[in-house]
């Protein structure tokens, strides 16, 4: 079983995000960068499937030099090898261009199964994994909370609004992870030491057969016109009162008579 995991380095969800002076990008200097939390779940699931089925786990990421940290983290968790697509020409690519580059990298790798987070918690586009599956012509199963493998097929329990469905597909296939699938392991100290010796290939997009003039910030189909902070609410109004019952009565009165929402 050859498994490829797509990972992305993103700002930690506890990070404060600030808008840069250009008004269309964020300040990056004070951010703590981590592996996208859904991708950690993807790496963990890949390791579990590999350990049950034998085979290998390859981690693929696109990003600047520091994105190598995220690949190393996955290798320290137990993945076997990494591919880092590091090319200034790819910087600022939109989801479709990113997916085209990743799909080109995947065409050079053997794979039975591709696993990715269902979204990256930076731009929240929910698009790259689906687009990779489309460009490779393979089925996708999104937001998976349980997997079973049998006879060259994968069976995934996926969340839908108001329930779950079980979806089956022949391999090769791609699925995306949702919280609840597993609890990602932490990289152990021996794992971190071993990761330093694991192979990590660095590729440019030209090496993947992608014309740099078709990707990157200049070729985005989605252009950011402005970034804004969410509208600020007015200062909180505290409900006064002695006992809980008094406060509750006042609260409901405001909601009913002033806000008119109950």
């Amino acid at each position: 079983m050859e498994i490829v995991v797509l990972v992305k380095q993103v700002p930690d969800t506890e990070s404060l995000i600030e808008i840069a002076d250009d008004g269309v990008s964020i300040k990056t200097q004070d951010i703590k960068w981590v592996m996208n939390p859904y991708d950690e779940i993807a790496v963990e699931e890949a390791l579990q499937i590999r350990d049950a089925q034998s085979g290998s786990v390859t981690v693929v990421s696109m990003g600047p030099a520091k994105a190598a940290e995220t690949i190393r983290t996955a290798l320290a968790m137990g993945a076997d090898k990494g591919v880092h697509i590091n090319d200034p020409a790819a910087e600022g690519s939109d989801p479709l261009a990113t997916a085209r580059i990743l799909a080109a990298a995947l065409k050079e790798l053997p794979f039975d199964l591709i696993i990715a987070g269902h979204r990256a918690v930076d731009e929240d586009n929910y698009q790259v994994a689906s687009a990779v599956a489309e460009f490779l012509g393979i089925p996708q199963i999104s937001m998976v909370i349980k997997t079973e493998m049998a006879d060259g097929r994968i069976r995934c329990h996926r969340t839908i609004d108001g329930g779950t469905v079980v979806v089956e597909a022949a391999l090769p296939a791609l699925f995306t992870t949702q919280r609840g699938l597993n609890e990602p392991r932490y990289a152990s100290l021996p794992g971190i030491m071993k990761a330093k010796k694991k192979p990590m290939a660095v590729k440019t997009i030209a090496e993947l057969g992608i014309d740099p003039a078709t990707v990157g910030a200049a070729n985005r189909k989605i252009r950011v016109a402005a970034l804004n902070f969410p509208p600020q609410r007015e200062a909180v109004r505290m409900v006064e009162g002695e006992a809980a019952a008094d406060k509750a009565a006042e609260l409901v009165k405001v909601l009913h008579e002033e806000a008119k929402i109950i």
Binding site: V121, D124, A226
Partner: peptide, 20 residues
Amino acid sequence: LTCTRPMFGGKIFADVQIEG
């Protein structure tokens, strides 16, 4: 069209335009 969409889990709202 200019679409407003939350990013970074709603910490930032982006006004975006789609080419094509």
